[in-house]
Nucleic acid binder design. Structure first.
Lengths: 239, 239
DNA sequence: ATACACGGGAATGTATACAAAGCGCGGCGC
DNA sequence: GCGCCGCGCTTTGTATACATTCCCGTGTAT
């Protein structure tokens, strides 16, 4: 299994990443090269390489005396990461609005928003998997509108945290009505953001992006209250 | 020379970092392990380790086909990094204001601001080195007020770019008067930020931090216009 | 002339042996 | 009994040999 990537180091990084995200390696766990090398059936060299890459992603920290430790995230960290994502997305769309974007780009993101509508326009259950995918694609497009590669890459960095990605907390809410309402709100914000960018309203675009991120926070807190709190992206949260 | 750190990898990282910051290794330069290993008189292993660390810092990028390339920064990137620092510092102080900070912390940063005054209160030339140091310390304290470790660490990350640090463009302006005026403005903003944080005025604190970062941008642009444009932190900017 | 294939060299990927450093445990002396 | 010293084990650090891959240039065949 998991032949992702062609080198042992990439495969090891993939496996390690999965184990961390699944929560099999809780925050604070010290990773020992030899043990991992045996488990993954490679030598220490690609293991070190893999740990290095995961440290770049922010999933591991370098321990003081060498070696790596699984980074631990508290509930507050998750909330803050979502807030930070909102701030950075806000900056990205503000800069896009201020710099101006081409009509082609606007119609491209508009088309994406239209396709999102289709996920829950039909009478049956909404297609949540498709929604997640298209929603992520929409947010990726938004970041692509940003004229600053620096801001773009920091935004991408934060979004790579599993619980800070735009489609991390796409509900699974109990009541269908609440879910639909949430989706309608999100779509309204999507369209308003595009309108603001097209109209060069930087401050509006920024405020909308920040508020938009609050949906994720609200969903997160709704889940935290519910008894069956078991979202995959939350496995790596300790405390 | 450069026995910084006790392992060969840390020493190699230090040497490489210096060479990149000095501009000896311009953006886009592909780094070859064997060549570097010979130059630094170590084996390939610590060289890889060093490159890994510099990639985490954002000074290197992983090339598609393996290996590392010196990250290249355009003038626009520098401007954007300063903007981003303002945004993140703004978020940090907003969160600090919203969460509230203790009186001890407030008086601590206040004391730092007072010590900054001393750098240019005397009649002679201002002590710019001391100013840079205290200014950096002040900004570090600001980030420490932020209740969110996530925001803190991303802010620290951006500040670690040599040209995005708060004291990267501390003038060296020709005219002493302009320099003093710039310092007075900066200090006024410093004090206003503290006041806003103490008074729980999140939005004000955020706006002030963003505007405060514009001083660096202005200094940068003033330099770009001048003929003798040779700021140490700009050596790694290409184009 | 062009396209494809083969070769060779240069670069990274990998394994492994050995070095050194950090930490804990146990023994010894007081 | 208590404290300190030192030894040994564990773990990372380093060097190096070998494997693999990829790029590029050259040659040949159509």
């Amino acid at each position: 299994m998991s032949d992702r990537g062609n080198t042992n180091a990439k495969r090891a990084a993939y496996d390690l990443r999965q184990r961390i995200i699944k929560g099999e390696l809780p925050g604070g766990t010290r990773l020992f090269e030899v043990a991992l090398a045996e488990e993954l059936d490679v030598s220490r060299t690609p293991v070190r390489e893999a740990m290095s890459r995961l440290a770049e992603e922010g999933l591991l920290e370098r321990a003081q005396s060498g070696g790596f430790v699984v980074r631990s995230f508290t509930h507050a960290d998750v909330v803050d990461a979502i807030e930070l994502r909102g701030v950075l997305e806000g900056t990205a769309v503000r800069l896009a609005a201020e710099a101006g974007v081409s009509d082609e780009q606007i119609s491209h993101v508009n088309e994406l928003v239209g396709r999102i509508d289709a996920c829950f326009a039909v009478s049956g259950q909404p297609d949540l998997d498709l929604y997640s995918e298209l929603n992520a694609a929409f947010h990726d497009e938004l970041s692509r509108l940003c004229p600053s590669p620096i801001v773009q890459s920091e935004l991408e960095r934060v979004k790579s945290l599993p619980f800070a990605s735009p489609s991390a907390f796409v509900f699974r809410q109990r009541d269908r009505d609440g879910m639909i309402q949430s989706l309608i709100l999100a779509q309204a914000q999507h369209r308003a953001m595009i309108e603001a960018i097209a109209g060069r309203e930087g401050a509006r675009a920024e405020a909308l992006a920040r508020e938009h991120a609050r949906i994720a926070r609200r969903n997160l807190e709704a889940k935290a209250l519910g008894a069956d709190f078991a979202h995959p992206a939350m496995a790596l949260v300790v405390e």
